[in-house]
């Protein structure tokens, strides 16, 4: 093993142990606080964690060592090793802390069903008078999702070429462009559409336009990732063959790359529309308009029969979209 590598692995091992033991001591003090109302200052939590991790590290029985550093192969079963029990401790303690934080309460689940009686009866007896109003809102949602997808396509399409490793030259400019677009896509995708909807509902006002903008931004980022990965998976042969005819870069992209990706692109886009219809409902809740907004209003008015109507419609649309998009994608596969 090289010296630099050994140093790196040692560092990783120590860091891992430190984090693990600080986590364990943090969890324990949380439990002590909940159960015995003992308040342990956070500085002590850090110190306890650090001390334990140093001890196990010195004794050579830590997880970090096990994972990052070569250890002698021993035939010990996991339950005969210290790291094995550490893992058990972590899992157990995580489960207990999780149970408390999430306020898991099976008693409520089984005894308080009658609270949901209103909404249940609404679902089984939807208010058909609301059909026209809901259908209008639903149309708004579907078109909103459709436009968001359509507007996202050209941006994602163009940018995805610059986010494909195999098309970008391995020069400073090529790498920079690639990294910028990839990171842009990653960051924007990791921000949920619902957050974008909140931003845009302030920006352009509550309504379907805000919802469309939110979904569009999210779709651009998501499609860039899907598209560019597809481009990276193409057969490089035809691209080289086209290059060898003396074609310029744009011609190579148009004739060597595009024909190979067009049907997966279509499949992804339709899939995206499908997702957007589902997200459009949620986005409506925070000011994005459409059926989601209607659902929110009716729920706040406790009009359960109206809520039931809306839920049935949403379910039907999601089901139909799902089927249609699966069928179309299946057809595209064979092309």
């Amino acid at each position: 093993m090289k010296k630099a590598n050994k140093l790196k692995f040692n560092f990783q091992a120590i860091l891992t142990d430190l984090l693990i033991w600080i986590y364990i001591s943090g969890c324990i003090s949380f439990l002590l606080n909940r159960w015995f109302e003992l308040a342990i200052p956070s500085l002590y939590i850090l110190i306890y964690g650090a001390v334990v991790s140093v001890i196990v590290m010195i004794c050579g029985i830590s997880i970090g060592r096990k994972v990052f550093l070569p250890t002698k192969r021993t035939n010990n079963k996991w339950y005969k090793t210290f790291w094995g029990w550490t893992v058990v401790l972590i899992l157990l303690i995580t489960f207990i802390v999780g149970w408390i934080l999430v306020e898991v309460n099976p008693y409520k689940f089984f005894t308080k069903f009658k609270n949901a009686g209103g909404i249940m009866s609404g679902i089984f007896d939807p208010n058909l008078d609301l059909l026209v109003v809901s259908l209008t809102a639903l149309a708004e949602t579907i078109y909103l999702a459709l436009l968001a997808t359509i507007f996202a396509i050209p941006f994602a399409f163009l940018l995805s070429f610059f986010a494909a490793r195999n098309l970008m030259p391995k020069t400073l400019i090529g790498n920079t462009v690639y990294i910028i677009i990839r990171s842009f896509a990653t960051v924007f995708r990791s921000i949920e559409a619902i957050v974008w909807a909140i931003i845009f509902s302030v920006w352009v006002g509550i309504g379907p336009f805000a919802g469309m903008l939110a979904l569009m931004i999210h779709s651009i980022a998501a499609l860039i990732k899907l598209y560019s990965e597809q481009i990276e998976n193409i057969d490089p042969g035809p691209v080289e063959a086209i290059k060898a005819t003396g074609a310029n870069t744009l011609q190579i992209w148009v004739f060597g790359v595009v024909p190979q990706i067009i049907s997966p692109f279509l499949a992804f886009t339709i899939y995206r529309w499908d997702i957007n219809v589902r997200m459009a409902t949620i986005v409506g809740f925070v000011g994005g308009g459409g059926i989601g907004l209607l659902l929110l209003q009716q729920q706040q008015l406790l009009r359960w029969h109206n809520v039931g109507m809306i839920i049935w419609l949403i379910a039907a649309v999601v089901w139909i979209m799902d089927m249609v998009s699966a069928k179309v994608r299946e057809k595209l596969q064979g092309m």
């Binding site: 057969d235 042969g237 035809p238 063959a241 005819t245 067009i262 049907s263 092309m335």
Partner: peptide, 13 residues
């Protein structure tokens, strides 16, 4: 300069 490849390298679809 024309080039012919073992794998033909045509655009399949």
């Amino acid at each position: 300069i024309g080039m012919i490849f073992q794998q033909f390298n045509l655009i399949k679809n």
